[in-house]
Design a protein around this nucleic acid. Structure first.
Lengths: 190, 190
DNA sequence: CCCAGATTGTACCGTTCGGTCAACTTTGGA
DNA sequence: TCCAAAGTTGACCGAACGGTACAATCTGGG
């Protein structure tokens, strides 16, 4: 059997950055072909379903990363010390993942575009699971359970909004500043 | 001179809702023609510059509304009582304007799409002026000036994020809940 | 009533879109 | 070494894009 020059997994990060930067509609196949260095034929070899399968694959990639690095740890906490550490780790991971405000949230971008419709359930699940996981951890941090959910909604929404606002004002540092305030809102020091 | 059947001002709200719902790229001329009930000829009679002029006109409309109803009142405050009232009025106006989370922020949608480039300065100005005005009013509310700016960034970003998250989770009530928390963050009761 | 001119619907333009396909290149086992 | 299979390419397709041209229609002052 012939060996694959480029793996499907190799183009996923490139696709992700293109969708982040240009949105789903804005990332045309011509742009994708140029950025990946692959012809349209190769792209359809990797993604027979076309552009929508590319978006689905990238979305799966993002979901897995968040599930592994953020959601699962948040849900796994049992004691107060572990919960505080998990929330602190989440904030650090978020800052790293979004490159301190220089990277956009792919799920958020999809949520605002016309491509939302075919992925509505997955987009909803991403945010819901983030809020649920954070609310669970915050409750273990000692917050009143009802208030924990409110804080979780405020923090997840705040992260999204900080990304949008940082991009809109071309001021990535705004993301870091807001994220720092949200971290303190969770009662997590440092 | 002949009378205009439809005024240019009449189609602006329709254009606004289309851009909000579908984004700039997603709102094709065919969709716009159908939604407004106007042919392409009429649209180009109103907006000789085409789709980009439509977006620019809608953007101007939004800017003016926010300038009149939000930014100017925020900047105008001098005493503490007035400042608290202005911030409270802002929160109320925001909830009304965004239909309690059922309406998207047009500037935020533009900020994330490919159309951001030609409007980058206006998008930046919109958010910057909102943050500046709110920071000014919050300082008059009694907050430490440096902290007032931090709160303002957190609140404006939080509003944006709450809109995105509410749409993503198809849960408009989330917007109202987060907005209520942000209001209390400003130290404004009721 | 009438007509200059503003407004309108629509056929049409070139371009670009996502997607297809047959020819060509590369691959690894026989 | 050779070949069947897998991978790759770029020309090509119909559809839809934004935009233009223009003939038909409506308007209101004279």
């Amino acid at each position: 059997m012939p060996r694959t020059i480029a793996e499907r997994a190799d183009v996923l990060p490139v696709l992700g950055e293109l969708f982040r930067r240009h949105g789903y509609e804005g990332a045309s196949l011509a742009v994708i072909a140029k950025a990946t260095g692959l012809g349209k034929g190769s792209l359809y070899n990797f993604f027979p379903g076309g552009k929508e399968e590319m978006a689905a694959a990238v979305l799966t990639n993002v979901e897995e990363w968040f599930e592994t690095n953020l959601f699962t740890p948040l849900f796994a906490v049992t004691d107060r010390v572990g919960a505080v550490a998990a929330v602190a780790a989440m904030v650090t991971a978020v800052d790293t993942y979004f490159r301190s405000g220089r990277r956009m949230c792919l799920v958020g971008v999809f949520a605002l575009g016309d491509v939302r419709d075919p992925f509505a359930d997955r987009i909803q699940g991403y945010f819901q699971r983030w809020i649920d996981g954070l609310a669970h951890a915050l409750a273990r941090c000692g917050h009143d359970p009802a208030d924990a959910r409110g804080i979780a909604e405020e923090v997840v929404a705040g992260i999204q909004g900080a990304l949008v606002t940082a991009r809109a004002t071309d001021d990535p540092a705004l993301f870091t500043r807001v994220l720092d305030r949200l971290r303190r809102r969770c009662g997590v020091p440092e």
